[in-house]
Design a protein around this nucleic acid. Structure first.
Lengths: 330, 330
DNA sequence: CATGTCCTTTAGAGCGCTCTAAACTCGCTG
DNA sequence: CAGCGAGTTTAGAGCGCTCTAAAGGACATG
């Protein structure tokens, strides 16, 4: 374990001051072409890597963006991967702040702030709006995926309502009339998706049928159990893919064929939904689009001087897979 | 955006020196009970949070452990979640270094080292052993999931060989005779798993049948295509769950029923395998066990003064789900 | 009352880097 | 040939914290 190479070591190697080497390493203007070349060569030779902590301390900038996510969610993971590349392009690094059952969102945020993140991206946040507004006063915050009613916050999200409406129209097009909606527990997203369902049902002249549910696979299983105990509709929309997958698995266990007997759809187009054996009809989340807009918003606030809050809404698309089919006996 | 609260602000608030406040915040011995109380109250009142960069710089310790993972993998994500809690228990914080198609392992490692991580956990690393040995000279490294032949490195892993042997015995117990193995591309893990297959087949007096494959779902799809073109065995083991899922989805598309016509098994017991519609028989990775041993090894090297390298091997268990059944026409 | 001991607190010198202001070099110009 | 300005380089003061050595206080002792 030899001592770590410092800026000073490189400076000594090329016979220049620390300041010059620092400028070269940062790509700051000033040093002559010859100096740049010699310094880079020496840095490379010695295996020098700038110390991020020291640099952050001295420059009062960490060039880091914190991302709070549920690392378990493949959809969040996909977003994070994409953001990693996008952040790199605008010269920032990403710091992941995982949210888990044992580490709530507040904790994740604190940890990211302790690390001096300059901006925060909250994927699928469940925190109360007031807290987010307060947080946004400390550091630019972009929330991804949830509408923030009444708050001036940067938001990038899908039009949840129109996404679910699209699914309903898809089901209606397949001849379904008895289409149920299993809602999530989230105050905002669940309400928006449900609204989309109700709107489309009413436009189709159909009677809405909404039941309580949740966002996890187990919630889907529970929904399936209670529906099996009563009457099964011919089509069921669930809050998201996770729940839909749980729902399908319980139907399978009960010997109900999807899509022959019941058509099922989710929301998110998570990688899970794309798996062959699952093949779930769902609403596609445009990951590259969400990513691009998110980092654009951050860039504008960090380097562009914007202070007014913006909301970007992406119109989603329905992805039809094998979990939906024409209603039986048409 | 008000200025961030510093140690000095807290010191001024309670009328003590920075040093005293620092000791209290770190829980270092010295300050009297009364001082501790007053300082903590003031810190809380002002909303003070220590600056990690400054602290790392001054103490020459970051108390951070870097974890390189494939964030897309639900199995890796599960491990990371578990490690987060375990690290917390021994007073460390975790820094995730995602490896993606656009950001290779070396890059992830560099970034973690730039952030002054004191130790590295490499989940499912694919780097050459020599590079890992060199890295281990800079900072304690624990590799999770892969045997490191001939290298003195800390390793925590499953006994891959016995895991696959177990699967073969399970298939044999179901009456299967024509059991194929689709191997992965990895030099070490793939070899170990294949060896387990060959050993168990030979013990059962059966003829081994190994075909090339890979670790992704697409690889599984490809394997299924080529097998469908030739003769289909009654049981197929694949390198991991991802590949097995791809394999199953292609069989489904071709109208081949799993498990009625072909039994399929994977490896990893990733959350995907547990999904109802997938219900894949596989080899269980003991996530809490892997985590516990990994952090134990790190603790020993960072705080326990151990220098000799250790290897922990966990004997895995076969998890039987709906993708395997008795061979048809027994 | 000087002295010693234990318990608390503090001064102050960094940690490795950034950044501003000032200094230096050199070729030109008047 | 003094003076100037553009192009380079550097001294040095931090950034917010830690940590060692030393100072300060309180109390008991001879």
């Amino acid at each position: 374990m030899s001592r770590r190479i410092r800026l000073e070591d490189v400076a000594a190697e090329v016979g220049l001051s620390r300041a010059s080497v620092s400028m070269v390493m940062r790509g700051a203007p000033g040093p002559s072409a010859d100096t740049v070349e010699r310094v880079l060569a020496a840095a490379d030779r010695l295996g020098y890597r700038p110390d991020r902590a020291a640099s952050a301390l001295a420059s009062r900038r960490s060039r880091m963006i914190g991302v709070v996510l549920e690392v378990r969610s493949t959809f969040h993971a996909e977003l994070a991967e994409e953001m990693l590349a996008a952040a790199d392009r605008i010269g920032y690094d990403l710091l992941l702040g995982p949210r888990t059952p044992h580490r709530d969102e507040a904790r994740a945020v604190e940890s990211l702030l302790d690390s001096r993140c300059e901006a925060l991206v909250l994927i699928g946040t469940e925190a109360p709006v007031e807290r987010l507004v307060a947080l946004d006063r400390q550091v630019p915050v972009v929330t991804v995926g949830r509408r923030m009613p009444g708050a001036t916050l940067d938001v990038v999200r899908l039009d949840d309502e129109s996404g679910v409406s699209g699914l309903v129209r898809h089901m209606v097009g397949l001849g379904h009339r008895r289409i149920a909606y299993v809602r999530g527990h989230d105050a905002v997203i669940a309400a928006d998706r449900e609204a989309g369902y109700r709107r489309a049902m009413s436009e189709a002249g159909l009677e809405p049928h909404v039941v309580a549910g949740g966002k996890d696979a187990e919630d889907g299983v529970a929904s399936a159990r209670s529906m099996l105990a009563e009457a099964l509709p011919t089509a069921v929309l669930l809050f998201n893919d996770q729940a839909a997958i749980g729902f399908m698995s319980e139907l399978a266990r009960a010997g109900v064929d999807v899509p022959a007997q019941v058509s099922v759809a989710g929301f998110d187009d998570s990688p899970l939904a794309r798996l062959g054996p699952v093949a779930l009809t769902t609403v596609h989340q445009d990951v590259p689009g969400l990513t691009r807009h998110t980092l654009e918003l951050i860039g504008e606030r960090l380097d562009g001087g914007r202070s007014a809050r913006r909301e970007v809404v992406i119109t989603p698309e329905v992805v039809v897979r094998a979990s939906t089919a024409e209603v039986a006996g048409i």
